[in-house]
């Protein structure tokens, strides 16, 4: 179980596919103190990030409105969001986007399809950057 300062961990899940968001949430749901907020577009994500505090963002790259890269750029351009962990989850087979995403400021990058364990482990390690505790 993950505890960040003894409070609930707020995760923003950004993907234009509702099914994909539900799948991501299903994978992460096992940690009881996670709560999830959905955003169906990059714009919606940016708005929520500006108005609300989150502990972590799970972000798709390929979206209508504005894409994931612009969301990363926006996050990294904000003082208060500078340290927000961003897990980019995108469709496999695009090595170029991995280096671009990490270069732009994503904290972690994983490709679909992913296993529940992999995404959960990634999220947990990102929330515990010191790696003090092992699962």
């Amino acid at each position: 179980m993950v505890r960040v300062g003894g409070r609930v961990t707020e995760i923003l899940v950004v993907d234009d596919s509702k099914v994909m968001r539900e799948m991501i949430v299903a994978c992460l749901r096992v940690a009881e103190d996670f709560t999830f907020t959905h955003a169906a577009s990059g714009l919606e994500a940016i708005e929520k990030l500006a108005l609300q505090a989150f502990d972590l963002v799970v972000l798709d790259l390929n979206m209508p409105d504005i894409g994931g890269f612009e969301v990363i750029e926006f996050i990294r351009g904000q003082d208060k969001l500078h340290h927000l962990p961003i897990l980019v989850v995108t469709t496999r087979g695009d090595e170029g986007s991995r280096s671009r995403a990490l270069g732009a400021g994503a904290s972690q990058f994983m490709t679909k399809p992913f296993t529940p364990d992999a995404i959960l482990a990634n999220v947990q390690s990102m929330l515990r950057p010191d790696g003090a505790e092992s699962p």
């Binding site: 979206m63 209508p64 995108t90 695009d94 170029g96 986007s97 671009r100």
Partner: peptide, 14 residues
């Protein structure tokens, strides 16, 4: 690159 290039503005579906 295409990943970014696809940030399309498409109003009707919203």
């Amino acid at each position: 690159s295409a990943e970014e290039g696809v940030g399309e503005t498409e109003g009707r579906r919203r």
